[in-house]
Each structure stands twice: as structure tokens, then as C-alpha cells.
């Protein structure tokens, strides 16, 4: 049993088939990049992983259990925009995740518990390089800094799965390269399983351990909505040799375990 299993997944909106018969399995700690043309269901797939949308048929199993049908703290998300709260400073945006958990009534901490949360948040704010902007509001930050903030905000919950929906699509190329380094570093440090949707094939190849291409397998010229997309390529990519080594190790271990069980 893999960490995440996608079994027989279909997504339809009325007559329109978006995804058809998707079957995938992902191991813990993988970094999956998802590319594909617009409308090929990659964002829909991500929304189903998030719990924002439900499969029409089939299921996604996480750690042996079906995914909860609404977003929760096990799955972090960074959108292309609107991920951070405009009425909160950088620091308050990041501690929010702790406040929601610790004060179930109003989601606001005071005194010692707040100090604790701030210390925890500062580590992450430092990790994404925003220490100098701790007390700024999002509108005072550049697009790249806002995305850094969104990542820090998600990571404070230590999510098992981190979903990135075209997170760098609106950024300048130079900034984007910095963000790639940041994400790779955080991924190595936290060991989170990451799914990232991108428009940019090069980015898809550069980041991650595995690349999925969502595309239509069949075309009907007269009724383009008849057939949905599936995964046409599922490529292992060896961006980081250490990771590749580990993943091979994991595979070998898994095979060994299976052999022993058989």
C-alpha cells in the first residue's frame, strides 16, 4: 500500500468529462510536479487532493484512509494568489495556524502562549527570508515575498502533504529561480510530500522527483467534452541525487518487504 493511492478516479461536470480513470500511487516524501495544457484537469486533480472538490467516481486514499471531503490541516496549500490574509501582518499571518489550533473558541492567542507561537513562527519566517518584513502587511510585499509568506504560513501546520497550485506563475523569472531553491530546501528539510501544478514544463522538470503530464488520451473532434484527460507521462526525474538515491532505496525496501510478506 502506497502513501497516497488514486484508484479509478473520474471527474465529470454534467456531460463534460474532465478526468477519466486516473490510477496513481505516490510514496511519502515524493515531490510530484504536474504539467499539462489548460483545462486538462491538473488543477481539478489538485483540488480533489485538497478536498475542495470530490471525485465523481473512484477515490483517493491517504495513509490507508479515504481523504476527508473538505480541506483540513493535513494538507497545506499555496495558491497562485490570495493565499495570505491582507488584514494581517507577516507575523500574524504565520502564527494564525497555531492560534486556530490552540484557541478553538476565537482563534486568538495572548500572553505566554502567543509568545511561544511567535517563536515558532519566527523560525519559519527566517527560513523563507522574511525576517526583515515581520511587521509588514501583504500589500507592502512584492509578489515573491507574498508567496514566501504563503509557504511559511502553510508549513507552520507541518502538513503531511503540501499542494502548490501554480505558485510561481505570476513571478519574474529571477525571483522564480530563488523560489525554486527555497522550495527544494524546505522539501529536503521537512520531508513533506509535495504536489505542484505548473504551466512551465521546464520548471516541472527542474523541481521534484517525479513528473506527471495530464493530457487527453482520446480526442473526439465533434464532441471535445466526451473524453477526459489522464496521466500520459509519469516520469521519474532525478533532480537531486541524494533524493533519487533515497527513493531507489525506498523502492528496494518496499520490494524487499513485499517479497518477505509473500
Amino acid at each position: 500500500m502506497s502513501y497516497i493511492e488514486v484508484n479509478n478516479l473520474w471527474k465529470t461536470y454534467g456531460d463534460q468529462v474532465v478526468l477519466e480513470n486516473v490510477n496513481l500511487s505516490v510514496e511519502k516524501g515524493e515531490f510530484v510536479t504536474i504539467v499539462g495544457a489548460s483545462g486538462c484537469g491538473k488543477s481539478t486533480f489538485l483540488r480533489m487532493l485538497l478536498g475542495q472538490e470530490q471525485p465523481s467516481k473512484g477515490e483517493i486514499v491517504h495513509d490507508g484512509k479515504p481523504l476527508a471531503p473538505e480541506p483540513d490541516q493535513h494538507r497545506g496549500i499555496v495558491f497562485q494568489k490570495y493565499s495570505v490574509f491582507p488584514h494581517l501582518t507577516v507575523l500574524n499571518n504565520v502564527i494564525l495556524g497555531v492560534e486556530f489550533t490552540k484557541n478553538r473558541l476565537f482563534g486568538k492567542l495572548f500572553g505566554a502562549s502567543k509568545k511561544q507561537a511567535i517563536e515558532k513562527a519566527r523560525v519559519l519566517i527566517n527560513a523563507v527570508g522574511l525576517s526583515h518584513a515581520e511587521n509588514k502587511y501583504p500589500h507592502e510585499l512584492s509578489g515573491g515575498m507574498q508567496q514566501r509568506l504563503a509557504i511559511a504560513q502553510s508549513l507552520i501546520k507541518e502538513p503531511e502533504i503540501l499542494l502548490l497550485d501554480e505558485p510561481f506563475g505570476a513571478l519574474d523569472p529571477g525571483i522564480r529561480a530563488d523560489m525554486h531553491e527555497l522550495v527544494l530546501n524546505l522539501w529536503r528539510e521537512t520531508g513533506t510530500t509535495i504536489f505542484m501544478v505548473t504551466h512551465d514544463l521546464k520548471e516541472g522538470f527542474y523541481l521534484g522527483t517525479r513528473l506527471w503530464v495530464f493530457d487527453k488520451l482520446r480526442h473526439d473532434l465533434h464532441a471535445p467534452e466526451r473524453f477526459g484527460a489522464g496521466v500520459t507521462y509519469d516520469l521519474p526525474i532525478g533532480r537531486c541525487e541524494e533524493r533519487l538515491y533515497e527513493s531507489i532505496q525506498t523502492n528496494v525496501d518496499n520490494t524487499a518487504r513485499k517479497a518477505e510478506a509473500a
Binding site: 485538497l50 496549500i77 495558491f79 507552520i156
Partner: peptide, 12 residues
């Protein structure tokens, strides 16, 4: 996006 983000931060 904001409402979803809040849910992923465990907000009720």
C-alpha cells in the same frame, strides 16, 4: 482561496 487556506490551518 482565503477560506480554503483558513481551513487548511485548522480553522472551524
Amino acid at each position: 482561496e482565503q477560506l480554503i487556506k483558513a481551513q487548511t490551518l485548522q480553522a472551524n
